[in-house]
């Protein structure tokens, strides 16, 4: 992994000098790395958008990478920053209820069991975790989530907002093991 890291650093240094071939190769490899990174941290539907956000951020901020230092911590910091952004945006986005006739088989288990998200959700209060799971991950409306949990509609919204804010704070406060 150290070899890969150094190689990425060299590729980025070449890209900073305007070497398009090195940059194409670097972004191609980073795209795969980012896909794995976000697949462990976000619901599947959000992974591709997060990867593209991160690639654009890497492109726009490539001058902030110092070739004298390791590349991997810089990459992880950018990826984590975009992950936190994504968690924050989940609390701002309006969630529309999915019609019953487009329902698909439940893949929650496959996603959640392998996901860091589940680990993070476990740190929330049960009411917050439940509200986020139902509305943000499973696409229920606020009203349906309210009926399912016994919380009022306002309380569901408050729990989602506070839960996502807490998730972002936890992510910011902990080291990145990627």
């Amino acid at each position: 992994m150290d070899g890969a890291r150094d190689e990425w650093g060299e590729l980025m240094a070449a890209a900073q000098g305007g070497h398009g071939g090195a940059y194409r190769r670097l972004l191609g490899e980073l795209r795969q790395w980012l896909t794995r990174y976000y697949a462990r941290r976000l619901p599947p539907a959000l992974v591709d958008d997060a990867v593209q956000d991160a690639l654009i951020a890497i492109h726009e901020k490539r001058h902030t990478y110092d070739p004298a230092r390791p590349f991997r911590p810089w990459l992880a910091a950018v990826a984590r920053h975009k992950w936190i952004d994504r968690l924050r945006s989940m609390s701002r986005e309006r969630t529309d209820a999915l019609p019953a006739d487009i329902a698909i088989g439940d893949h929650e288990g496959a996603v959640v069991s392998a996901s860091v998200l589940r680990h993070l959700m476990a740190t929330l209060k049960p009411a917050q975790a439940e509200a986020i799971r139902l509305v943000k991950l499973e696409g229920y409306s606020i009203e349906d989530a309210s009926a399912a949990t016994g919380q009022s509609g306002s309380l569901v919204k408050v729990n989602i907002h506070r839960g996502l804010k807490r998730l972002a704070a936890i992510v910011r406060g902990r080291g990145d093991d990627e």
Binding site: G18, T35, D48, Q52, I56, Y65
Partner: peptide, 22 residues
Amino acid sequence: MTSERLVEMLSARLTPVRVRRL
């Protein structure tokens, strides 16, 4: 847009940058 296409676009419009120094 796919992320593969995005990689192509970003690579195609690459320009040299001056590295930030503290």
